[in-house]
Amino acid sequence: MFVYTIRRSLIAIPTLLVISLILFLLLDLAPGDPTAQLPLTIPHDVKERIRESLGLGEPIHVRYALWLVQFFVNEPLHLLSELTGWDLADDRQRVISWQSRSPVVDIVMERLPQTLWVVGLSYVIGVLIAIPVGIVSAYRQYSWFDQVGTFVSMVGFSIPTYFTGILLILVFSVQLGWLPSLYDTTLRVTDWQSFLAQLRQMIMPVSVLALYNAAQISRFMRASILDNLNLDYVRTARAKGLHERIVVLVHVLRNSLAPVVTVVALGVPGVFGGAIITEQVFKVNGLGQLLIISIQANDLPMVQTLAFIFAVLIVIFNLVADILYGLLDPRIRYD
């Protein structure tokens, strides 16, 4: 298992490097120029110096190497010095946003909690709904519960999240006026009243994403339980006279959770990507909204960093899924 984990982790490094190179080259083709918005009265040679100060004068391989050092060495050191209070980073050069002129990673860290709260919570709720629904649907296959579950999950992943979001806003904010349609990030939870306000503004974005996630995961859960229900060990367990609840909830569930756990792990980065849209609908100022405004402002370092962070998430959770699968099911370790 140890060798398997190490080998799997080592494969992730070249993948990440290739992805970072693709992102870098793609953005280098960009026709956008950060000095395009400056007044025309600035002389040409001054403009040229501004470009150089933004690091645009160097040839491409130098800039790529510089970016790698900035992203993988300088930024972690800065983060570490902030966390520990030691001065590890001195004044190593950081990735600077063209739009706000402050370090990209600082802005990302500012935005991260909002995304994590909304997206993370919705994913957890989605999984918590999906697992029992999947179990009951499979155990009572073709019952009315299963039929309804199949229909709801089909609807759940067919309706795009931006439409479910708008539908909820229309019903609960516009018609009934129960919930706020905008997510207020300046809200600080200090007492019971502000906690309730926070809860109320989170209900809609969280339930939109939770429905979408639950729809997909419950299908996997159902299929996985169905695969196991007719196997010999289930018959043996029943023949031993075990209580039906123990057969299903202990023997079958444990075996059918393995593929579901990997699906859940694989889905995490996709949820971050999908949250871009939900954040836009409810005006949550998280990472997704940051990406959209950076794209509109042509802020390439920010776009590059965010896209790369999304890629890192995908690679890491692929790794987590593989390792978990290996842990849960020893048959597929290949070592």
Partner: peptide, 16 residues
Amino acid sequence: FLALPLLPLLLVAILL
């Protein structure tokens, strides 16, 4: 390709 962050990448490609 499966490891690429598709939605961000689509947005970037359209911008470019």
